[in-house]
Write a protein that binds this DNA or RNA. Structure first.
Length: 514
RNA sequence: AGGGGCGUAGCGUAGUCCGGUUAUCGCGCCUGGUUUGGGACCAGGAGGUCGCUGGUUCGAAUCCAGUCGCCCCUACCA
């Protein structure tokens, strides 16, 4: 392998190392060189997750999990504020449930893990344990790939009258989809998510709910992840298995590929019919209830990484950073450290009073330079360094993770200044991502122009489509691009399908996607 | 499922073609010292069922057979 790695050329004499003999630890592949390697390296080196011995499954490490917990906490509050409550349903679903809704089973059957036995026994040759053939389950259980079936089977017992509606429930859970190819956070066999499942008396109310939750997701993405999204609806072929309509938010990653970041489904009466969930309306007539489901997963971690991060590591928007500020002392000897620590701890408590999460890292296990690099790798938005020079001059050095800029400022009003800086970083990350999205969203009026745009820059391409699955399929086959969505704010515009030439009255969003 | 490749210390690897002292090097780890404004340096040290099983041989990481696991490409994939 002739892979050459040039590390820290800026700081040291330029050192060229080959993977043959030597590889600097914590060196991540540059984005430009290989975006995919960059992503994988970053997830591992920033200590967010690692591959487990179980194929397709990952271990989410404390730093990654802390970010997920921030997402959970924020979303959970948003769900509660919109009237939802949490509950928990079983991991296992009787196999027969899955097949009650035809489209649903069709969509998921090929990627289900199945439990067939309930006991092990010692192998006769002493080689370990084997499945006890005596302990075969009468009905196999599948590990939930999603919970519609078990939940609707349960709702049947909870809903009798319009007075029981709406039923607005969410669950935080893990699910399993036996994927062939997996990537940390983006696609793993087991992942964490939330799934909301609601029941309503009318079609209109259910649609309103599905749209409301899509807006919650969009607000979360933009306000907390600082990740601009396009809201839209999926075409029939991209629709959730069992849904009448699938709403989605689509984001654009730095490499020009799209990522579906969240979905919200209007399920019509499909599951109510499949599980016979009826309610008596005010007139005393029985009717099937109307349903929605909506979810976001640990995939958002991937979205977050690929929206803001750089070659030095993770870049976190302050609102999601488990640690917003780190204070690093620079010192010679314990006496100096003691003086600096005293001041640093004052800053720490001033910041904490403002509700900012802050760590003072006075560990003597690593040197300051190592800490700088490490906290950059982990995405801490603001770093404060205090050394003897600062101590003399009544200053500190503040460094911004997103812009990698540093400034020396006075102690005076430091907490206020940092508080403001965190807000600026949040806004600036969003603005930057938004400009990228706008610049990467272009119109194509011919199939040739479309292909050229895809190959040259990727991004979102707005084009006319005749509305048929055949054309959609052909485009996918020929270009690997899919219709990400029909945007909710689609402008009416008469045009012709770029492939078939048939009439179209608005543009849809195409992209190559994760 | 078809094709290709790889298993040597926590990680990355040399050695395998052509069998031969104590299995190579780097990172990381431990100890001591010097250091500390961008991933420090010096010295010393610990760490190995060479994936597993069997065979050939005076002798196997190396050759042979079997076996297990993983990765990549193609195919599949909401």
């Amino acid at each position: 392998m002739e892979r050459l790695i040039v590390t820290f050329a800026k700081y040291k004499k330029c050192t060229i190392l080959t993977s043959q003999n030597c590889q600097m630890s914590k060196a991540i592949t540059s984005k430009e060189k290989n975006y995919s390697d960059w992503y994988n390296d970053l997830v591992v080196e920033a200590d967010m997750a690692e591959h487990s011995d179980v194929r397709g499954c990952m271990v989410i490490k404390p730093h990654g999990y802390a970010i997920w917990e921030k997402m959970q906490a924020t979303l959970d509050k948003m769900f509660k504020d919109t009237g939802h409550v949490n509950a928990y349903f079983p991991l296992f679903i009787p196999k027969s449930y899955l097949s009650k809704e035809a489209a649903h089973v069709e969509g998921f059957a090929k990627e289900c893990a199945v439990v067939t036995h309930y006991r092990l026994k010692n192998a006769e040759d002493g080689s370990g344990v084997v499945v006890d053939p005596e302990a075969k389950l009468e009905e196999e259980l599948i590990v939930r790939p999603t919970s519609e079936t078990i939940i609707w089977n349960t709702y049947k017992g909870w809903i009798q009258s319009y007075r029981d509606l709406p039923l607005l429930i969410n669950q935080w859970a893990n699910v399993v989809r036996w994927e062939m190819r997996t990537r940390l956070f983006l696609r793993t066999a087991e992942f964490l998510w939330q799934e909301g499942h609601t029941a309503h008396a009318t079609r209109e109310e259910a649609i309103e709910e599905a749209e409301k939750m899509l807006n919650v997701y969009a607000e979360f993405a933009e306000h907390f992840l600082a990740m601009p999204v396009i809201k839209g609806i999926k075409t029939a072929s991209e629709r959730f298995a069992g849904a009448e309509e699938t709403y989605c938010i689509e984001a654009l990653m730095q490499d020009g590929k799209a990522l579906q970041a969240g979905t919200s489904h209007f399920l019509g009466q499909n599951f109510a019919k499949a599980f016979d969930v009826k309610f008596a309306n005010k007139e005393g007539k029985l009717d099937f209830v109307w349903a929605t489901s909506w979810g976001v997963s640990t995939r958002l971690m991937g979205a977050l990484i690929m929206t803001h991060s750089d070659d030095k590591g993770l870049v976190l928007p302050p609102r999601l950073a488990p640690l917003q500020v780190v204070i690093v002392p620079i010192y010679k000897g314990e006496e100096e450290l003691a003086k600096i620590s005293e001041r640093a701890l004052e800053f720490k408590s001033a910041l904490q009073k403002k509700g900012i999460s802050v760590k003072y890292d006075d560990s003597d296990k690593q040197r300051s330079g190592w800490k700088f690099a490490e906290y950059e790798l982990k995405g801490v938005p603001v770093r404060v360094a205090i050394g003897p020079r600062d101590f003399q001059n009544g200053t500190v050095e503040i460094a911004r993770r997103d812009t990698l800029t540093k400034e020396v400022v006075s102690h005076e009003g430091l907490a206020d200044r940092i508080e403001k800086m965190l807000e600026e970083i949040q806004q600036s990350l969003f603005d930057k991502a938004k400009s990228r999205l706008v610049a990467s969203t272009r119109k194509a009026d011919s199939y040739d122009a479309f292909k050229k745009m895809l190959d040259e820059d990727g991004g979102f391409i707005l084009a006319h489509w005749d509305g048929t699955p055949e054309t959609e399929e052909r485009i996918k086959e020929e270009t690997k691009a899919t219709i990400r969505c029909i945007p909710l704010d689609q402008e009416k515009e008469d045009g012709k399908c770029m492939v078939s030439g048939k009439p179209s009255n608005g543009r849809v969003v195409f992209a190559r996607a994760y």
